[in-house]
Design a protein around this nucleic acid. Sequence first.
DNA 1: CTACATCCTCTAGCGACTAGAGATGCAAGA
DNA 2: TCTTGCATCTCTAGTCGCTAGAGGATGTAG
Lengths: 140, 140
Amino acid sequence: MKKITIGEAARRSGVKVPTVRYYESIGLLAAPSRSDGNQRSFEPADINRLAFIRHARELGFEIEAIRTLLTLQDDPHQSCASADAIAKARLVEVEQRIRSLMALKAELETMVEGCGHGRVDQCRVIEVLADHGQCTHPHH
Amino acid sequence: MKKITIGEAARRSGVKVPTVRYYESIGLLAAPSRSDGNQRSFEPADINRLAFIRHARELGFEIEAIRTLLTLQDDPHQSCASADAIAKARLVEVEQRIRSLMALKAELETMVEGCGHGRVDQCRVIEVLADHGQCTHPHH
DNA sequence: CTACATCCTCTAGCGACTAGAGATGCAAGA
DNA sequence: TCTTGCATCTCTAGTCGCTAGAGGATGTAG
């Protein structure tokens, strides 16, 4: 078994070095064995786990959700209902966030289009912000 | 002039009481005068300013951007080019975020649809997370 | 043997709040 | 007047998920 340093693990998993240490510190990743000089020595399985975490983070899952997903992965005989529920909840969140951002986009477009590029007292950007009643899109 | 308490200001502007104090502490809102008993006493203009901040925050502007927008509002003879630039930058951010979230949505949908509701070792949610190569959508 | 990159631990900082402790202030009812 | 009870005050510390930096040890190539 050749040793995998933290830098190598970071490169292979796409997780940054300090973040790897951070994940270890919060117990998301088991503490790896150490070299004679006290340097971390990772196993290939650790790389997979880090890549899993990274992918889940990119999908916007919170650390606690990932913790649950990882315990599920560790015990493949369990029902995947929890995993399914977590993913579904995340899907609902994402859908909501998209809807909300679309409304913001529309409002920002109105603001920017209305801007006559003159002085602030005729600026629709400032005006719309100051008076919420001018909001065409009742998103909030 | 009747006094507006912090609670009243919070209710009228839609900004929470501790957040009003926070905005004062970071200099986004001028420190209001105080009553005999050292309680904050706001002016109607403060309510407008708070509402402005709240609206801008809802649109996702960062505090520092809002600080700039507020100084522009305070001096209406300035050119509104900065306000326009800030809003445009925010629009670009929002558009990017929407695109990214659409990709996530698609991936999450694939995961959830593929889940046979059986055991974890056949669960597509876990599987896709573990193996990024299975990602149909190359969003990252 | 010497450079130099990489590693170690530790603490503090980011943004934008939020929560809580413990001490006053204030308005209304008995 | 007294009391009840909510609102307010200041202050510190916590949230999330890292990120930056100090100051030192280790590992490797020439």
